[in-house]
Structure formats: structure tokens, C-alpha cells
């Protein structure tokens, strides 16, 4: 639709990756977000090396202490160092976000490919299913899943994965419908390439840019939903340094120990914002192929 403005450099030949990078590196906000995410991931992976204290080490002489040089983000009810808990908790929040979207994305992508490629009954059935799933707010679906499986962080992963499925399924179905008609896919079909290979080797790569964009965006919202679930007591349970669970702890100490609410919340916000802004930047950089 608005692709005419960007199509001006027909003469020079760039690989799609180089072309993407040329556009993406101008998105300063997205670059910064990417750097923030890299930092968060590194900090989580290296938590045992970086965190000044263990996530569960109590210090009863230093209970509910405000920020100080010894405890940069203060301490909680057991005198546990909040900064250390946030760094360790990053492992939980980031992996819940990543694994759940990977899981939901995998199911959604296969569902979209199959229903876009074959059409007919499979297609209308799975798209109806997506309509129904999309009509519900993610948190309600997730609570429904937790109600069946029981509270706990493992079940939160499945719960959050469920509401990513329809997003990816619709997205990939749309691309599949368009790509199915392209010359190169028709050509591949005409020389007898198997359906499986057509779907996964010829059509899927074309749908991949959009999938990558949504991957980033979904991680942002999945981290939020997972933290909400832990906050209302249906996700990670108390001793765990999950960010939402930490906020739930801090709820009873508002005005007494604000550091218990302030810093975990900030961690959730920054992480979700970084993934959303990265996703927006990726979308802009990949725009040509998305529309």
C-alpha cells in the first residue's frame, strides 16, 4: 500500500538481510531496546556471577531496609537483597516469556501453514477456533488453563502459550495464502516437490519476517500476563523471586518498604517495553514485506 516510497533503489542489489539491517539500524529506539534486552538476558544467564547476594539469602539484621550501597535496591521482609532477587527473577520472567511464545508460535505457525495451504474444512475449523480464542482477553484464557492444570510457574508457560497460538496461526495463514500463488511455489509444485517440503522450505521462509516481529511483541505481552498471574497468586509461588510474585509480597508493605514494589515493577515495565519497542522497530524495518 505504502511501498512506493521505499522502492527507489532498484539499481543496487542487496541481500534481504543487508537491506533489513540498513533500515533497522536507523531505528535508534529499537536498537536501544535490543541492547537492553541483550543486557537483561546476559544478566539473567550470569546471575550467579553478577548478583551481589543469593536470591534466598536472608539477613535478619537488615530487614525492610531502604536502598543503600550494600543493597542498591534495598531489602525485603526477610532481609533478602531485592536487586539480587530481580536479577535471579529475570531468569524466570525471560524464560517464561521466551518458552511460552516459542511454544505458542510453533503450534500457531504449523496451524497457519496447514490451514492456509490445504484450505477447506481444516481451514474453517481452525480459523473459527482462532476467532473464539481471540475474542477472550489473554489473562482470562490463562486463568482458565491454570484452573485446569493448577497454579505454578510451569503451568503458566502453557497458559500463556495458548493465547499466542491464534495470533501466529492467523498471521501465517495470511502469508501462506498469498505465497501459495507465487510463481516460485507453483514452479516447485510443478516439478513434484512434496507438500511437506513446499510448506516448510518454500512457503515458511516467506512468512518468517512477520513471525519474527510478532515473536518480539508477544514476548512483551506474555511477560506481562505471566507477571499478572504470579501477582494474583496463580503463578510462581512466594519464595520464588519471580517479579510478579515479588510485587505481591510488596503489596502489604506499601508506605513501609516501597522498594519492594518499586523495583520489581520497574523490571517488568522495562522488559515489556523493550520487547514491544523492538517489535515495533522490526516491523518498520521489515515493512515492505509485511504489507
Amino acid at each position: 500500500m505504502s511501498a512506493t516510497t521505499a522502492g527507489g533503489r532498484a539499481g543496487s542489489i542487496h541481500s534481504p538481510l543487508a537491506e533489513f539491517w540498513r533500515r533497522f539500524r536507523r531505528k535508534h529506539i529499537a536498537l536501544v531496546s535490543g541492547a537492553v534486552i541483550l543486557l537483561l538476558v546476559t544478566a539473567s544467564v550470569a546471575a550467579p556471577l553478577i548478583a551481589p547476594y543469593g536470591p534466598a539469602v536472608p539477613d535478619y539484621n537488615n530487614v525492610l531496609a531502604g536502598p543503600s550501597l550494600a543493597h542498591l535496591c534495598g531489602t525485603d521482609t526477610f532481609g533478602r537483597d531485592i536487586l539480587s532477587r530481580i536479577i535471579w527473577g529475570g531468569r524466570i520472567s525471560l524464560s517464561v516469556g521466551f518458552i511460552s511464545v516459542a511454544l505458542g508460535g510453533l503450534v500457531g505457525v504449523v496451524m497457519g501453514l496447514v490451514s492456509g495451504y490445504f484450505g477447506g474444512l481444516i481451514d474453517s475449523f481452525s480459523m473459527r477456533l482462532c476467532d473464539v480464542l481471540l475474542a477472550f482477553p489473554g489473562i482470562l484464557l490463562a486463568i482458565g488453563v491454570v484452573a485446569v492444570l493448577g497454579p505454578g510457574i510451569d503451568n503458566v508457560i502453557y497458559a500463556v502459550a495458548v493465547f499466542s497460538v491464534p495470533v501466529f496461526a492467523r498471521l501465517v495463514r495470511g502469508s501462506t495464502l498469498a505465497l501459495k500463488q507465487t510463481l516460485y511455489v507453483q514452479a516447485a509444485r510443478s516439478i513434484g516437490v512434496s507438500r511437506f517440503k513446499l510448506m516448510f522450505q518454500h512457503i515458511l521462509p516467506g512468512a518468517l519476517p512477520a513471525v519474527i516481529v510478532y515473536f518480539s511483541l508477544r514476548i512483551g505481552s506474555s511477560i506481562l500476563v505471566a507477571a499478572s498471574l504470579s501477582f494474583i497468586g496463580l503463578g510462581a509461588q512466594p519464595p520464588s523471586p519471580e517479579w510478579g510474585a515479588m510485587l505481591a509480597d510488596g503489596r502489604s508493605y506499601l508506605g513501609v518498604a516501597d522498594q519492594m514494589t518499586l523495583f520489581p515493577g520497574l523490571a517488568i515495565f522495562i522488559t515489556a517495553l523493550a520487547f514491544n519497542l523492538l517489535g515495533d522497530g522490526l516491523r518498520d524495518a521489515l515493512d515492505q514485506k509485511l504489507r
Binding site: S221, S228, F231, G244, L247, G255, T261, L262, L273
Partner: peptide
């Protein structure tokens, strides 16, 4: 609008309670 979708609403709620109820005493918690 952009930060609105990334902002944990329960965190905002807690911050508001802290400010308006605990500190200023204007509104019930």
C-alpha cells in the same frame, strides 16, 4: 499510548495506592 501497553496495570495500581492512600490519605486503599 505506547508505554500504556507495556505498563503492568497492577504495578500502577500499587503505586497509586502508595501515593494517594498511604502517603496523602486522600482515597481508600
Amino acid at each position: 499510548a505506547v508505554s500504556g501497553i507495556s505498563f503492568p496495570s497492577f504495578w500502577l495500581g500499587l503505586l497509586l495506592i502508595d501515593l494517594c492512600s498511604v502517603r496523602l490519605g486522600w482515597l481508600p486503599t
